[in-house]
Design a protein around this nucleic acid. Structure first.
Length: 171
DNA sequence: GCCAACGTTGGC
DNA sequence: GCCAACGTTGGC
């Protein structure tokens, strides 16, 4: 089994939105980045575990767990001229874009913020693209060690003296 | 809202 | 194949 981190803008599609879906499952359509596509198409397997990450929001960070709920298949939104992510270079005979379905597992007991994750960028999370400057990948692999470490952070209360700027709840 | 970092496009 | 221009991502 593999581990992943997947980003979503909560204004567009949040973890709550996923939990509210029928079967708590959603096709992860709209990915138009080759690296992200390759990981979904070539490496994701049913049951792989996903850190669900909220980007472009007040407190970016890992908000929950999801899992891969289907085999990869072509992203049909690329074929639809009316769709936001229409791509005329993709057609059903030679699909350019692929997706997997993602199923809700649970919310984190607390948000593990990007700011907090970054405090470990020179340690256990050194190899995680998310904490490296300028990273824009919306789907990335997570090692078993990184996965366990991040879940360990979840179980550890934030020490106020060590809390990164911005990790506190906004007022 | 700003802007740095990045990926893609297209002229040459 | 190079690279400047452009559009997008996403933290802050």
């Amino acid at each position: 089994m593999n581990y992943w981190l997947m980003k979503s803008e909560p204004d567009a599609f949040s973890l709550d939105d996923l939990a509210a879906r029928p079967d708590q499952t959603e096709p992860w359509d709209g990915v138009r980045n080759y690296q992200a596509r390759n990981m979904m198409r070539d490496q994701m397997r049913l049951g792989d575990q996903i850190l669900f990450y909220h980007s472009n929001c007040a407190v970016p960070g890992v908000v929950g767990i999801a899992e891969v709920a289907s085999a990869p298949y072509p992203d049909a939104t690329a074929f639809d001229p009316a769709a936001k992510y229409f791509d005329p270079k993709s057609d059903p005979d030679r699909p350019r874009w692929y997706l997997v379905e993602v199923r809700y597992v649970r919310h984190m007991t607390r948000i593990v913020s990007l700011a907090e994750l970054k405090t470990h960028a020179d340690g256990p999370l050194g190899g995680l693209p998310l904490v490296r400057k300028g990273n824009r990948l919306s789907v990335m692999p997570v090692t078993p060690e990184q996965w366990q470490f991040i879940l360990g952070l979840e179980r550890t209360p934030i020490d106020a003296a060590q809390a990164p700027m911005g990790a506190e709840t906004k007022d």
